[in-house]
Amino acid sequence: MVIAAFALAQLARDAGKAIEAPLWVHWGGPPTARMLRHSDDTFDPSVKSSIHKQLVKLAVCECMPSAAEETADPEGAEATYRFCSDWLRRKALQLKGVSPFDVVHQENVSYGYHRNVLGIKTTGIAIALCSIVSIAAAFAFNRFPVIELLLALAIAGYLAFAITERRLKSCADSYSHRLLSAVDAIPVSGSGNRRSRAVK
């Protein structure tokens, strides 16, 4: 039973990871990297400048792209933003349980859950509908599995209306916002995996 549960969880995670990259393309890039761009208005420019300065202070990169450099070399700037966002995600996991990263971790769990369930949404709805048909057929034999029918209907409705791309994007944006807002809480050790950047 434990092995089956683990296998199902792994299948859901694999399905979730499979839809992640295409969704990021649809959303304009990975949420955390996107929010680091000067062209993104999630954060006030002064707040974003503070985040950029803290990333340099943490020795994540030698310097962050200016707005002009981002316009001149969007690919180079994007590479820096993605490197920083990957570093931040790893650091947040190391600081899990430490305020404010406990909240960041909760947002990450919420995102992972919605991503994985969205990945298996079609399969889940198909299984729920098959269950509904099978349960409904039982009524023809004077059996009345009402609780099972209501449960199958609830699962189908939940997957159809509560698990959506829009909801997942909201979870992703909440996680990224929390993560970047917590940058100032990361202790400065002076030994980050510094990335140098050359603007073309």
Rank of each mutant, 00 (worst) to 15 (best):
F83C: 14
E62F: 06
G124T: 07
V104I: 11
D73R: 01
Q94T: 13
S110E: 15
A128H: 04
M64T: 03
R89G: 15
W27E: 00
E70Y: 09
D102K: 05
L93Y: 12
M35C: 01
F83D: 14
G29K: 04
H52Q: 10
C63I: 05
R115Y: 02
K17G: 00
W24M: 10
R89E: 14
V47K: 08
F83M: 12
T32R: 02
L58E: 12
D73Y: 04
Q94R: 13
Y113T: 14
A21T: 11
L58Y: 12
T32G: 08
S49A: 15
I19R: 13
S85F: 09
V47D: 07
R90L: 15
H52D: 13
P100W: 13
V56E: 13
Y113E: 13
P100F: 13
T80N: 09
G124Q: 07
K121V: 03
I19L: 06
A72D: 12
Y81H: 12
P30H: 05
R34F: 01
C84E: 00
G97R: 06
L55N: 04
A92M: 03
A21F: 06
V103S: 12
N108A: 15
W87A: 12
D102M: 04
S39G: 01
H114C: 10
A18I: 11
K57S: 09
D41P: 00
C61W: 02
A128C: 06
P45E: 03
S46E: 14
R115F: 03
T42M: 08
A79I: 10
R82L: 11
G112P: 03
K53T: 15
V47I: 12
L58V: 10
V60Y: 15
V104Q: 05
K17Q: 07
T80K: 06
L55H: 02
P22W: 07
R37Y: 01
G112W: 02
G97W: 10
T122G: 01
K96N: 08
Q94W: 09
I120D: 04
E70A: 01
Y81C: 05
G119Q: 06
P30A: 11
E62I: 05
A59Y: 06
W87T: 07
Y81I: 00
E75W: 14
K96Y: 06
R34M: 02
Q54S: 06
